[in-house]
């Protein structure tokens, strides 16, 4: 019967039917290829974010029953001076990343092309900080900043100044950690710039040479404009990465002294896993997510417009 019916169908429906069958087959194939990644991703990324959002409307210590309190966590958060301090500190990390790390990374990359002896060894050493684990870096620098035995104060003394209690002084702790962040990440930008510089055609410099350009003119009129795309993509990486900063601050000061180095990340962690204010911590975490989302979307829009204009 079945086969008889099929044969009675017109040519067109048969084509449609087989196309449908092929589409189903294709959907199944796509599903099978994607399923493992999608399941892991949904369980450990998408569902947790939605959960965080829902937890943020509750007062909850993590074990006993949750109490729904609406937007109260957010109201409290916006009146919480520690939260604003931590947001400001996050912004300082962003600023340092963009305006110190990236230029320094560029200088390091330029040095790799300098006509001096031993540059191969230099370049290997320059990259080393980026290989070390953040926890190890944090612990190492805690001792480098030691008020009595640390090398940094040794240098400070050499220059004729008094010892500084770097990490336990509210005025210097943030600067000290930012220096370590610069130490860790500049090599990363060095590599990005090096790759971009290798791509710049030698002919450009040669013809500039013939036109009588000096080294500075060559840098500002050839190298820098051609590095613009790398500067933009490095800035994106720096901004997004800085909003996520946690490890080095947690290890070196734990956000102290007196919240001078508190970040949204360290504050959220303390609220969640030390004070067990899981609802409040979820509100902080969700704000972190929103900020990252808004920044990413803004960057994409700016980047899109820039590319549409055909600029660099």
């Amino acid at each position: 019967m079945e086969t008889a019916e099929v044969t009675r169908r017109s040519e067109t429906t048969r084509v449609v039917a087989s196309a449908k069958k092929r589409n189903i087959r294709k959907a199944v194939t796509i599903g099978l290829f994607t399923a493992p990644a999608l399941i892991v991703y949904l369980v450990y990324v998408v569902y947790p974010i939605l959960s965080t959002l829902s937890y943020s409307f509750y007062s909850w210590d993590g074990t006993s029953d949750k109490t729904f309190i609406g937007l109260e966590n957010y109201v409290q958060l916006f009146n919480d001076t520690i939260f604003w301090t931590s947001l400001t500190n996050n912004i300082w990390v962003v600023i340092t990343s963009v305006f110190v790390q990236i230029p320094l990374g560029m200088i390091m990359a330029l040095m790799l092309f300098a006509p001096i002896r031993g540059i191969r060894l230099f370049s290997s050493v320059y990259f080393l900080p980026f290989l070390m684990s953040t926890v190890a870096i944090g612990l190492l620098w805690v001792y480098m900043f030691d008020p009595i035995n640390g090398i940094i104060n040794q240098l400070v003394n050499l220059l004729g100044f008094e010892n500084v209690a770097w990490l336990s002084d509210e005025n210097t702790a943030l600067i000290a950690i930012l220096l370590v962040v610069v130490w860790q990440f500049s090599p990363f930008y060095m590599i990005l710039f090096k790759a971009a510089m290798v791509g710049i055609s030698e002919e450009l410099y040669e013809s500039a040479q013939i036109d009588g350009a000096n080294a500075r003119q060559k840098f500002f009129h050839i190298t820098l404009p051609l590095l613009m795309p790398t500067i933009v993509s490095s800035s994106i990486l720096a901004i997004v990465g800085s909003l996520k900063a946690f490890d080095i601050f947690y290890i070196m000061t734990g956000g102290g002294p007196n919240h001078a180095t508190e970040l949204m990340g360290t504050y959220m962690f303390k609220q969640a896993f030390i004070n067990f204010n899981m609802g409040y911590a979820s509100a902080i975490a969700f704000i972190m997510f929103l900020i990252a989302l808004i920044v990413t979307v803004l960057i994409q829009i700016v980047d899109y417009n820039r590319k549409k204009k055909g600029a660099f």
Binding site: Y44, P48, I49, L243, M264, I284, F289
Partner: peptide
């Protein structure tokens, strides 16, 4: 895009639910 957007995600936004999970 769903997969790629994970790159900008702060881990903190998933921490408590993953801990409970």
């Amino acid at each position: 895009l769903l997969f790629i957007s994970g790159m900008m995600l702060p881990i903190h936004a998933t921490l408590i639910p993953i801990f409970k999970l």
